[in-house]
Write a protein that binds this DNA or RNA. Structure first.
Lengths: 335, 335
DNA sequence: TTGGTCATTGACATCGTTTTCATAAGAAGC
DNA sequence: GCTTCTTATGAAAACGATGTCAATGACCAA
């Protein structure tokens, strides 16, 4: 749109009195260039204010130095933490990240995937929205684009690289902890059943309950949107039951924080009368009062592993899809 | 890196039995194309799995459909909210956003600016790190790149478009509110003095104190990193004074949340014995107990305004730099 | 028949790089 | 001083699109 055109390698070469090819070799750090000419050219670049045009370079070399990162929303600290991990790992390799947020809308996810393709990303890390089938993603693969799935599963998990946490185990750890504390009626609050993540955490919940010899009471399982509001509504609902629970395992920390608010409103003493365990271990969990017992899901690490995996694929790794499943860790605090 | 090459417009044209020029006209939505050929070509695209190469197109047309967005960190809800505003406004215009986080490191900021240039962004929205001079940013302008500064000022504010909130007024509103509540010793906690934002909020603080006929006591002004930890440390420091404050105005909500934690540790009853006002109005502020009185800084709106302004510049607006200063709003809650 | 639209075409230049590949300059070997 | 081998350099094609423009044929009205 702007008039002022860039300084090109051509101009630099001319100014330094060498050929364009030589200048090109220099920006790419070739060794077969004498020290003097190199100096001379670098000097010219500085003088002219040359800016490397990575776009043009990538076009010519059929190479891409960008990767797409698609998540549901950046407002969730779990994802922002994961983004930090992704950035950290990919910056190191010289990639630039294009972020996309779907807000869990299928149409947005499709649009984002298209945009990423148009921008020639070299690979994609995606936390697919619940219900995404592998066909939705396969068109990337058909174009030869490496894809790493993170945190959430698609309908056919085995088709792509995957990095996530063991949600079944996480749920189990959380609920076992509550059982050890002497609770018998434990609610499972938050999330919606379309999500594979919730189903897994729920399974862990059930395993722990059953192994302890208790019964699963369906009225204690509440689906809600993943938000504080959702948590607040959920806890109110179960507290009004004839036989209310004495503890809750929450879908994630955000929901748990909402649950805590709800309990405070109801003047229930958290930590004594009622215990809560969350999931994710977002920063805030350690800062609220009482501090929140939770299951660490290592967002930062997930981001890093996913990036490393993607990088390997982009470098031509062609082995079978890999699955990296991190072992969650219970963080016991006051709640 | 991958072998499978893209389908080109050329191939589409061939398959549909038209010329490349025609195909090009179609992807660009020209009107002087008959309905039938258009259909035919679109059909071929679908069959061949054509993907538009925006990179190549932009290179040729000397046009850019990306913009850079540079902030200090994505973990701060203020910025993630602002990012949502930016995305919202720029998606509508068909731009793609490249996000960069500086973590308030000058070296990172420089590197990011270079990266953005190399990727041919069409413009940049930046919340510069404290101490950024306009020279640091001027090289963008010299390349004809529109720049909009947001939320924080550079050393010469008048050189670029700017969107932000009136921090002086915000600080004043906050402190006036505390004074009305009967407080005489009011602390100002958090942030570091290199930040123009803090200086402005501090000025508002002082104006309110002085207008009420009180004295500013320097021991009540505490600089800290902008984090919960910082807030916690700050409140502990002032509580141990011989004459501790009875209220605090905090640099922002994050700090305020830390201050609240600190007060709870010290078993001070927030809302009765001690009042707090934060700044930004992040989501969490309304969710903590007691809920946090704060000054709304409209991150979402700032993002949108900044985007609109940038878009206008990218469309060739050449008027004088504009300054959009939003009027902050006191949100009274329980704290 | 003439003239005038209209849709489409073909050929070529261009964006700023990378990538061959051929060649020139320089050093080493005899 | 002439060949041989490096090493550095140059000319030109390529990447996948856009932009320009004159030329074509079809169609319609007069």
């Amino acid at each position: 749109m702007k008039k002022r055109s860039r300084v090109t390698l051509q101009q630099v070469a001319q100014h330094a009195g060498v050929s364009r090819a030589t200048a090109s070799l220099i920006v790419r750090g070739s060794e077969s260039i004498s020290k003097e000419t190199k100096e001379k050219v670098l000097q010219s670049m500085k003088e002219l204010g040359y800016v490397y045009d990575r776009i043009a370079a990538n076009l010519r070399s059929q190479h891409s130095s960008t990767v797409g990162f698609i998540i549901s929303e950046i407002g969730n600290p779990f994802f922002s933490e994961m983004l930090v991990g992704v950035h950290k790992a990919l910056d190191k390799e010289g990639y630039t990240v294009i972020l996309g947020t779907t807000f869990d809308l299928m149409s947005k996810q499709q649009a984002l995937l298209s945009t990423m393709l148009e921008y020639r990303v070299g690979g994609v890390i995606i936390s697919p929205i619940p219900g995404t089938s592998h066909e939705d993603i396969e068109r990337l693969e058909q174009l030869g684009l490496p894809v790493v799935i993170a945190t959430r599963e698609t309908t056919s998990p085995e088709k792509f690289d995957y990095v996530g946490v063991d949600n079944v185990l996480g749920g189990k750890l959380a609920v076992q902890h509550l059982i050890e504390k002497g609770h018998k009626r434990i609610a499972f609050l938050g999330g919606t059943d379309v999500s594979s993540v919730r189903r897994d955490r729920m399974r862990g919940y059930m395993e722990a309950i059953v192994e302890a010899g208790f019964e699963v009471d369906p009225v204690l399982l509440v689906e809600t949107p993943v938000s504080r509001k959702g948590g607040m509504d959920a806890i109110k609902q179960v507290l009004s039951l004839p036989e209310p629970p004495t503890a809750a395992f929450c879908y994630n920390d955000i929901v748990a924080l909402g649950v805590m608010s709800g309990l405070k409103d109801a003047e229930v003493n958290i930590g004594q009368e009622f215990n809560i365990v969350g999931f994710d271990n977002i920063q805030e969990a350690s800062m609220v009062t009482p501090s929140l017992t939770t299951v660490d899901a290592f967002p930062h690490e997930i981001g890093e592993y996913a990036s490393d995996l993607l990088h390997q694929r982009m470098m031509g790794l062609t082995e079978e899809p890999k699955r990296i499943i991190l072992t969650p860790k219970l963080i016991v605090r006051e709640s």
